[in-house]
Write a protein that binds this DNA or RNA. Structure first.
Lengths: 213, 213
DNA sequence: TAGATTGTTAATCGATTAACAATC
DNA sequence: TAGATTGTTAATCGATTAACAATC
């Protein structure tokens, strides 16, 4: 039997631990204590050890964890042991930014193609080609793509998701400002930038108000 | 006494309810049941009513909620009753995409200036000017800015946050791939795009594996 | 050995859900 | 009135934290 389901927060923390570990390694550190990783990820040391224990990652009592080992193990969990290919549908502001985001290249995430409905955006010759959205299904099959990003306007998002499902995409990050339903055999995460800002606004106002009282 | 603290999830849901309500209003709907909003936000009807009750929002037993009233009340909570001004520090891929993001304009969120350390990016004459980061403090004071977005490389993020704090910024959305500590009197939310994709990758792989077993 | 750290089990806390009371 | 829906209180569930056992 595989490992049991862990929650979203846990996976986000693993990603943060990994980022911190890579920085520590760059500083020539070899070992790390749970306390250090906790500081880096803004959590408690117990949380770090608990997260690790869920994945059977163990260190040395008294000696902490070996950074190289940790990176290797967390990387395997997060799927960083091979290149993960994504396509993007919707080459507007956000779509284009992600297409060119340099942070992905050095981290086993590869955006392999963009798709749009506007012919003015097509660019078959580019390093990352931009193609008509009608070609998405064939491209996904031909290249064995598993993951997609949606960055179209809200009115087009549901249709794009359905096209992706037909094409065989199994995991989607949706930036369109509409909450897409998670289909039976595909993971969908809705990330709304306006909502993120509203969150900041609310909690900032709340804190200010609490202060005044 | 003000309302007690609610959790992040609740505010995200309010934002989703609001988006759904605006779409319903555009379709000339006047009333809505908790069941409908639940569908739109991918939660349960009880969750909707519970969220509303936390903010003293009430409807009509048997008659549901008036859409106009709901939008007004949720908008007030999310700070959409006035324009909220943001600055962005770091005009790279993500920074520039946010600067030009059309979704913000129509929703009381205004990006009023960008800042960068690279003179090649300065553009004082633009509709949204791009200025040297040294000028940020003065700009924030002069224009009464409360909110900031960080989209610089990880190595610069902490320093930018400190500059923002000095300038009097009270709420920050951080896109730099490093987890910034929340200071005493400022709200900070860390949003890492690579982490979001890693999340999709993990849960997709997990689901595929579970299926095979 | 003594001390420091990991790793696990049990307790706590907070959020969601269920049950049901209120009422239009 | 009967039926449908809201709104609230209590129960459940899941995640985090505390306590402590294990051990290098």
């Amino acid at each position: 039997m595989g490992p049991s389901m862990v929650n979203r927060g846990c996976i986000i923390r693993l990603s943060r631990y990994r980022n911190a570990l890579i920085r520590l390694k760059a500083l020539n550190f070899v070992k790390v204590f749970s306390e250090n990783l906790a500081d880096a990820a803004r959590v408690t040391a117990v949380q770090v050890r608990k997260d690790f224990s869920l994945f059977g990652i163990s260190g040395n009592r008294r000696g902490g964890y070996l950074i190289d080992e940790l990176i290797k193990q967390i990387s395997a969990i997060l799927g960083k042991d091979k290149v993960q290919k994504f396509i993007i549908v919707g080459i507007g502001n956000i779509g284009r930014a992600l297409l060119n985001y340099p942070g992905f290249r050095k981290s086993e995430i590869e955006i392999v193609a963009g798709f749009d409905s506007n012919p003015a955006k097509f660019d078959r010759g580019a390093l990352v080609p931009i193609l008509p959205v009608e070609e998405m299904g064939a491209f996904v099959s031909a290249n064995g793509i598993t993951f997609g990003i949606i960055s179209v306007p809200d009115t087009a998002a549901q249709e794009v998701l359905e096209r992706m499902l037909e094409a065989g995409i199994k995991g989607v990050l949706n930036f369109a400002p509409i909450c897409l339903k998670e289909p039976k055999d595909c993971v969908v995460r809705n990330l709304n930038l306006e909502t993120e800002l509203e969150n900041i606004i609310y909690f900032t106002n709340f804190a200010e108000q609490a202060e005044r009282e």
